[in-house]
């Protein structure tokens, strides 16, 4: 019985990580690296705040997707390259994650979606997001983004007290307009000038790089639910959080891979662009690391053209 439970927990554990990275098609041809990626130009000033105003709780839930610090259309596209020396391994992990998404995570999330109404799922997401305060706050401080740290602290205090322990998100309302500082340790290293390195797809955790892989450990260390004992309750909470999150995003991944000729490449490019833009946006907010002409991290610049 215990081994069955372990298998189930492991299965759920593996399944939920696919939210980050599932893709479905493995192309046989090997690609030489580095791979070109379209990247937004750094020549334009990066706006540090979304101009979008939240409307209500349910609309607010989806604003995270648009609430990117760089979210506007002023970027010009430029070509950068990303090394992908582990492409065969990455494609295998990609497919593994894809299957886990379609065979396990999505069915779980759809069932959960049917049973639990959307406002309740949004509240659960808010609750877990509020618990992510220590990591976001510390990373803002490490990036010398003291405004962001102050915003995070205010958000945590207000959402915990008036948001009923974080279930509600009054801070993101029209009145307060304190938006979440969605940052992590990988971005902090990027702000310090540490480059991406090569592309890697982790089973369960999905697309990453050596730099961003540090985030997994760092965020775990600063995430209170990680300390729940015993371990299987900890993993259960983690799995529940991911299922809840995916239940609010069903269809996003399908849309992404549905429009792609090679979903692996599409996701890789999207991920790298997303992370590079994140780092640029964070640099713009940094007191010490901000520069007028934001450049690519050295490791990326050093890649062979």
């Amino acid at each position: 019985m215990k081994s069955y439970l372990t298998l189930i927990v492991l299965f759920i554990f593996l399944a939920v990580g696919c939210a980050h990275s599932p893709t479905s098609i493995v192309l046989p041809q090997a690609r030489s690296f580095p791979q070109p990626v379209l990247l937004a130009s750094s020549s334009n000033k990066i706006p540090v705040k979304s101009s979008r105003k939240p409307v209500d709780a349910i609309d607010d839930e989806y604003k995270d997707d648009q609430n990117l610090d760089y979210a506007n259309d002023t970027f010009k596209e430029e070509r950068v390259e990303i090394a992908d020396p582990l492409e065969p391994f990455n494609r295998a992990m990609h497919q593994f994650n894809d299957k886990l998404y379609f065979w396990a995570l999505k069915p779980f999330a759809q069932g959960y979606n049917t049973v639990v109404p959307e406002p309740a799922r949004i509240s659960v997401k808010n609750f877990f997001s509020n618990l992510g305060f220590p990591a976001r706050f510390l990373n803002c401080l490490l990036q010398t983004d003291f405004g962001g740290a102050s915003t995070e602290f205010s958000r945590f205090a207000i959402n915990t007290v008036w948001g009923v322990g974080g279930l509600l998100d009054p801070s993101a309302g029209k009145e307060l307009d304190l938006q979440k500082q969605d940052t992590d340790l990988g971005q902090t290293l990027g702000v310090y000038g540490v480059g991406h390195g090569f592309y890697i797809v982790w089973p369960v955790y999905g697309p990453s790089s050596p730099r961003d892989t540090v985030t997994i450990g760092g965020d775990c260390f600063l995430y209170p639910p990680s300390y729940i004992e015993p371990w299987y309750v900890n993993r259960g909470v983690w799995a529940y959080e991911k299922i809840n999150y995916v239940s609010l995003r069903i269809g996003d991944y399908e849309s992404l891979i549905g429009a792609a000729i090679d979903p692996y490449v599409s996701i890789r490019d999207a991920y790298i662009q997303y992370r590079l833009k994140d780092v640029k946006a964070r640099k713009e907010k940094s007191l010490l690391f901000k520069d007028g002409n934001v450049s690519l991290p050295p490791a990326d610049q050093s890649l062979p053209k």
Partner: peptide
């Protein structure tokens, strides 16, 4: 609460 209906929270 708002006239149109809404939540308010209190500490």
């Amino acid at each position: 609460s708002k006239e149109t209906g809404g939540l308010n929270t209190v500490i």
